[in-house]
Simulated assay, not measured.
Amino acid sequence: MRPAYATTDRTFAVPLDRRGTGRSPPVTAREAARFGDPARLAAHLGHFRADAVVDDAELIRRHLCGDTPRDTLGQSHGGFLALTYLSRVPRGLRACHVAGGPPGLAATADDVHARTCPRVRDRCHAYCARHPGDAVLLRRLADLLDAHDVRLPGGDRLAVRRLRTLGPALGAGDGFERLHWLLDEALGADGAPSGAFLHRVAALTGPVDAPLFAVLQESLYGQGAGPTGRAAHRALAGRPEFAEAAGPLLLTGEMTHPWMSREIAGLRPFAEAAELLATRADRPPLYDLERPAAEEVPLAAVVCHDGMRVDAGLSLDAARRIGAARVRATDEREHDGLTASRGRVLARLVERTAGRV
C-alpha cells in the first residue's frame, strides 16, 4: 500500500499495489522460475484474480476505517475491480468512481475480442490517415525484420509480430503522437533499426517488472463460462485484415498471444503455466448479476464512446444492470482520461455520485 495523496480539494486516495505488483510483492519471471512445476505455478496464479484483490482491499478498509464504508476509484482494470467489490462486499462501499469501464458483466474473452478487434482496426486506419508516411515505414520495418535477425537489448528477437504489439499506445489520448515520434527515429543512417528505437521497443513490449497483466489478461474474463483458450489469437486469425502480409500493416491492441510466453524473456518462465490457465474452465463468477441492481451504492462511470480497449457497448450494458449507476459516454477523452485530464474527470465523477449532476 502506497501513501495517501490528494485527488481533489476534498478527496484523498490510498493507492494499492494489487497482488503480485509493485511492493505486494511482485510476481516476476525470477519468482515464477522458482516454482519449477508449471501446475504449481498455475495454481498460485489462480489467487490473483479480482475476487482475491477485492478481499485484500476490504481487509485494508476494515483495518483503516472499521465499519465505515469508503469510496473506490478505478481506472481500466480498476473499474473491473469496483464491479467485483460491488458484487461481493457492497456494505464496504459508499460510492464507486470508474473511468475506462465498467466491464461487461457477463462478457467472455471471446465477446470482448470480437468487439475490440474492429476498434483496433479502425484506430490503426485513423493513425495511418494522420501519418501516412508511418504506414510506409511500418511495412519497411516489417520487411527488414523478416529478412534479418534483429535483436533487442537482452537478446529477444524483434519479429514483426512483436513490432505489432506497439498498438496499445493508440488507445491513449496522446498515443498517436507518441507512436509517431517513436517511429520517427526507428531507422539509423545505415538503414538498420537504431539503438534508441530498439531500447524503446524492448521497454514497451517486454514486461519485466510487471508481467502478470500479460500472463493473466484473458483470465480477467474467465468466470465459469468455459476456458478462455486463446481468444485474442482466434479473433485475429479470423480477420484477414490483421494478416502480416495485409496492407496496411495493422498493429494489435491490448491482447496476449500464444507466442509471447515463448519469445519474450520476461514471460518465458510463465509459458507452461499460462497454457494451463488458458484451458481452465472452473473459475467462479466475478460478478453477481442480481446483487448490483438491488444495491443503492452510487456508481459514476465515464465510458469512452469509441474507446479501443474497453467496448462502450459492454460498459453501457453493465450500467443498465446496476440500479444506482450514472454513466456518461463521451468522445472527449480516451482510455487514459482519468490521468490525462488533470483532475477534471475525477471531479466530474465525484459530482455525479454526490448527486449534483
Rank of each mutant, 00 (worst) to 15 (best):
T28N: 02
A29R: 08
A29H: 04
R30I: 11
R30N: 12
E31R: 15
A32E: 06
A33N: 03
A33S: 02
R34T: 11
F35Y: 10
F35C: 05
F35T: 11
G36A: 01
G36Y: 04
G36Q: 02
D37K: 08
A39K: 12
A39T: 13
R40E: 01
R40T: 00
R40W: 00
L41Q: 08
L41R: 11
A42R: 07
A42N: 08
A43E: 07
H44L: 03
L45F: 03
G46C: 08
G46L: 05
H47F: 05
F48P: 14
F48N: 14
R49C: 01
R49N: 04
A50P: 04
D51V: 15
D51Y: 14
A52P: 06
A52W: 00
V54R: 10
V54G: 04
V54D: 06
D55I: 00
D56F: 01
D56R: 06
E58M: 10
E58F: 09
E58Y: 10
L59H: 09
L59P: 07
L59R: 13
L59M: 06
R61V: 02
R61F: 02
H63Y: 13
H63N: 10
L64G: 12
C65N: 14
C65I: 08
C65E: 15
G66A: 09
G66K: 10
G66T: 12
D67N: 02
D67I: 01
D67H: 04
T68D: 14
T68E: 13
R70G: 03
D71L: 04
T72F: 04
T72Q: 04
T72A: 03
L73G: 10
L73Q: 12
G74R: 00
G74W: 01
G74S: 02
G74E: 02
Q75V: 15
S76Q: 12
S76V: 10
S76Y: 14
S76D: 13
H77K: 14
H77N: 15
G78R: 09
G78M: 05
G78S: 07
G78I: 11
G78A: 07
G79C: 04
L81H: 11
L81D: 11
L81M: 10
L81F: 04
A82N: 07
L83Y: 09
L83F: 05
L83P: 05
Y85C: 13
Y85V: 13
L86Y: 13
L86W: 13
L86T: 13
L86I: 11
S87Q: 09
R88V: 03
R88L: 03
V89A: 15
V89Q: 15
V89Y: 15
V89P: 14
P90N: 04
P90C: 02
G92H: 06
G92M: 06
L93P: 09
R94V: 04
R94L: 04
A95I: 01
A95D: 02
C96F: 12
H97M: 15
V98G: 11
A99F: 05
A99N: 10
G100K: 10
G100W: 08
G101I: 01
P102Q: 00
P102A: 00
P102S: 00
P102I: 00
P102E: 00
P103D: 01
G104I: 08
G104W: 08
G104R: 12
G104F: 07
L105F: 08
